[in-house]
């Protein structure tokens, strides 16, 4: 079951922006978008219930706040899209589920949907055939040309907000892809583990363990985050040779 949604924003650029975001999510389906709030009011009150309504706060004729009052009962979740945070507090009073401050990124958009619908996580439309032992990414340092990355070559992946830096045995690649997406690509490979909010590593390339710091084969040093400590320590314990001598 796809989530159904409606977009209301008097700015056509904003509508187009959110449309592309929605198209990038596998589990969300856009019913209709409106740039005229009065038309939206008439059609929504007469139409079927939906899962999400995205609504701009500042619109002519009828404000997003007033409109939201009238249509609140027709939608499960109401998300305000606004250009400034002054309205955020009022928005929550209206039982809005969330708000997105313009301009917002796809990552923030997807994260908001995921938070509101935890039972049907919106996986980005990522298509990678997992059978092969490699994948291609665009390398930003080389004019966005595609470059082959072998799973076995990956030492670590560092998050740079919407980009990642992939450290392989031989080189470093910067690519426009989020760490959360890389995590999905790597999820079937037991050798990879997230050790920090901004780092995924290949466990077989750990060279040294000093307290909470991992030293990788390429001299990269990584601090292990609190919430990842236990699993990584378990792995290291498992791999540590034990002797009976004391």
């Amino acid at each position: 079951m796809k989530l159904t949604c409606i977009v209301i924003d008097d700015d056509i650029h904003a509508v187009n922006g959110i449309k592309t975001y929605i198209n990038n999510l596998a589990n969300v389906h856009l019913i209709k978008s409106y740039t005229d709030p009065l038309q939206a009011l008439n059609e929504i009150t007469a139409g079927d219930n939906v899962d999400i309504v995205f609504i701009d706060v500042d619109m002519p004729m009828i404000s997003g706040l007033e409109l939201s009052k009238a249509i609140r009962h027709k939608t499960d979740k109401l998300i305000f899209t606004t250009s400034h945070s002054k309205y955020a507090y009022e928005a929550f009073e209206m039982y809005a589920s969330a708000y997105l401050l313009k301009p917002y990124t796809f990552a923030r958009f997807a994260e908001t949907i995921n938070r509101l619908f935890p039972h049907s996580p919106s996986v980005p439309n990522l298509t990678v055939k997992q059978d092969d032992d490699y994948f291609f990414v665009r390398n930003k340092s080389e004019k966005n040309n595609l470059i082959k990355v072998r799973y076995t070559d990956i030492v670590a992946v560092e998050s740079l907000q919407n980009y990642v830096r992939i450290f392989t045995i031989n080189e470093t690649i910067v690519s426009y892809i989020a760490l959360s997406e890389i995590k999905i690509i790597l999820k079937d490979y037991q050798n990879f583990a997230q050790v920090h909010r901004s780092f995924i590593i290949a466990k077989n390339y750990i060279e040294k363990v000093e307290g909470n710091t991992l030293k990788m084969i390429n001299n990269l040093t990584i601090n292990v985050g609190n919430s990842y400590r236990e699993s990584i320590q378990d792995y290291i314990k498992e791999k540590t040779i034990k002797t009976n001598r004391s």
């Binding site: 700015d11 650029h13 922006g17 500042d58 250009s83 400034h84 401050l101 313009k102 301009p103």
Partner: peptide, 17 residues
Amino acid sequence: QPHLLFNTLDFIYQNAK
């Protein structure tokens, strides 16, 4: 006006994307 500022930035963002 913050309103104009952020709406404009959003407009540029949408077009530059």
